[in-house]
Design a binder for these strands. Structure first.
Lengths: 141, 141
DNA sequence: CATAATCACTTGCTAATTGCAAGTTATCTT
DNA sequence: AAGATAACTTGCAATTAGCAAGTGATTATG
């Protein structure tokens, strides 16, 4: 009786992705978790692009609701919440990778070290993300 | 003297992608071009998700500005514009593919025929897109 | 040739979202 | 006990999205 469907604009899988991730911030939060190992609200505030506090809170809430990340209280500091990527979140690694490679191929961008790694062996980079997140739930890395 | 840079929020290649494609419509327009062969304003209006006319005009304008698509007048009908994917636009095929596969893996979505094809041979689907768009510039259909 | 239809948009207006600054609450830390 | 810190809210102005209706330039029809 609680199973209310999300009610999408269409059945298309691309549309589902766009409805969950199609904004200017969600994927950057996931990037910071995946590549920079960020796990707390305060760390996300340090994102290069300067996200506003209310937007960050809103996006974290939505990402939790979509099952892309989880939030659990920190054992050693009651003020903190620790955010983790779920399997669903980790599975976004190929999406992020392709988006990085596309922009790097067609725009003038930074972080060429990462781009080079991705060009050389995309799968290896993705496997690295999976490894680093394999045993991270509830333990601040 | 005309070379004004886009002025991004950061140098990050993912951010560049998000700034160009991070909204609720741009990728759906590209999907309709890539997968459904759409090329005109009127066809885009038939998108499953029901885009508004002003938003469509705005997104087409931006996609042209980003060099992802081009617009040229139709030879046989002076009212029409024919939109085409550029090489940059075609290169989004891997991004779209990964987004489709991610949503199909984690959400309840439709178009399982396409999803099956992508799961069986991702590269083949992408190569198909490239082929279909190889000689399409200025010739409708 | 006049009228109607089509195509690709604009315009006007309202609703929703974004972003900045400031405030709040519950922990720590000293 | 006082101050700092973490994770948010709240208020409000500014931008963006979305709907309905209108425009202008072709093209098709009687």
């Amino acid at each position: 009786m609680s199973g209310q469907k999300p009610k999408r604009r269409s059945e298309c899988p691309l549309n589902a992705s766009v409805e969950m991730l199609g904004d200017r911030w969600s994927l950057l939060i996931i990037r910071d978790m995946m590549l920079r190992g960020f796990r707390s609200y305060k760390e996300f505030m340090e994102c290069y692009e300067g996200i506003a506090t209310n937007i960050l809170a809103d996006r974290l809430r939505k990402l939790v609701a979509y099952g892309i990340i989880t939030a659990e209280p920190d054992q050693s500091d009651g003020r903190k919440l620790i955010y983790s990527l779920t399997a669903k979140g980790i599975d976004l690694a190929p999406v992020l990778t392709e988006m990085v490679l596309w922009a790097a191929a067609h725009e003038d961008t930074g972080n060429q070290a990462l781009v080079r790694l991705m060009r050389e062996d995309k799968e290896k980079v993705i496997a690295g993300v999976r490894e680093r997140w394999a045993n991270r739930h509830a333990s601040p890395g």
